[in-house]
Design a protein around this nucleic acid. Structure first.
Length: 274
DNA sequence: CTCCTATCCTGCGAGC
DNA sequence: TGCTCGCAGGATAGGA
């Protein structure tokens, strides 16, 4: 479910939560076989310590606790839900409950269990996240070198855009959206995309991700922020999930194709291959 | 190397 | 109403 905007919102929710109490009081594990087995013992050893800050890198959440980092990924259906003591209702796929000082807790709920929670040293973290490409919303993003990277690739541009080695944070929804906004066919080979088109693409990637954050992310199916609220950006999607509907720009029909193992939405009339 | 496919898992909607 | 089938926002191993 979650791409960069959704994970960023969760990160901000948790950041705010930590203002009301950031000490780890207890962990409760209900189920540990997520994508990876949860390191229960290691996490238990963090009891009494403070989560000094939370960060997002790509689609990962990072909780810093002294010299260690709890790394969490939401997979397709993961949620870190904030609950206050005495409130909140148990859900079927609640796997981990982190009780914080200040009377609130974080509950990791994940029906499909593609998400995970890992424990790393700060050194181990850079190793673990070393194959990741640049952050699209970083002010240090070098568009020129990004264009150079992409120009060397032979895959369709949409596939490359979703590959976290090249650029992080863009998943299936925002890849289709950014390509439509930049008027580039998802099928176009990276090496054939012109420099001018790449300029447009980086601009649209940034714009669509920022707009999605502004609108609380996209709730297509299950995404909820940490306060269990749905996003609103699904109402502003121009091509994703709109196959058979009219293109907002040229009024021809939006189609879907299977590309890189994912459903891809585009307007063949606006997004020409050559 | 790069690219492509299958896979992990549950829930839901479509179609019969 | 109830069954089966296919598909869903991600990441990665293994094969070509």
């Amino acid at each position: 479910m979650p791409e960069l905007p959704e994970v960023e919102i969760v990160k901000r929710n948790i950041e705010e939560l930590l203002l009301s109490g950031n000490r780890i009081e207890s962990w409760l594990f209900k189920r540990s076989d997520l994508r990876f087995v949860i390191p229960r013992r290691g996490l238990q050893q963090l009891k009494g310590k403070k989560i000094s800050r939370v960060e997002r890198r790509a689609k990962y959440l990072l909780f810093f606790v002294e010299e260690r980092v709890i790394l969490s990924h939401l997979g397709m259906t993961g949620q870190w839900r904030i609950e206050e003591n005495g409130t909140g209702s148990k859900q079927k796929h609640d796997h981990v409950i982190l009780q914080l000082s200040g009377g609130k807790r974080l509950v990791f709920c994940d029906p499909r269990r593609f998400g995970f929670i890992e424990l790393l040293s700060v050194d181990g973290l850079s190793q673990r996240l070393s194959g990741l490409g640049p952050e699209p919303l970083s002010k240090d993003l070098n568009r020129q070198s990004l264009t150079e990277t992409f120009s060397r690739l032979q895959s369709p541009v949409k596939v490359a855009l979703m590959n976290q080695k090249n650029l992080v944070g863009v998943g299936n929804i925002y890849a289709s959206e950014a390509l439509f906004r930049a008027q580039i066919s998802p099928l176009k080979k990276c090496s054939k995309v012109k420099e001018k088109e790449y300029d447009r693409l980086w601009g649209q990637v940034v714009d669509v991700l920022q707009a999605a954050i502004q609108s609380g992310g996209s709730t297509i199916d299950s995404y909820r922020n940490s306060r269990s609220e749905a996003g609103r950006f699904q109402n502003e999607l121009l091509v994703y999930g709109r196959d058979g509907e009219e293109c907002v720009k040229c009024h021809s029909v939006i189609v879907s194709i299977f590309l890189g193992g994912r459903n891809t939405f585009w307007c063949p009339s606006c997004q020409k291959r050559s």
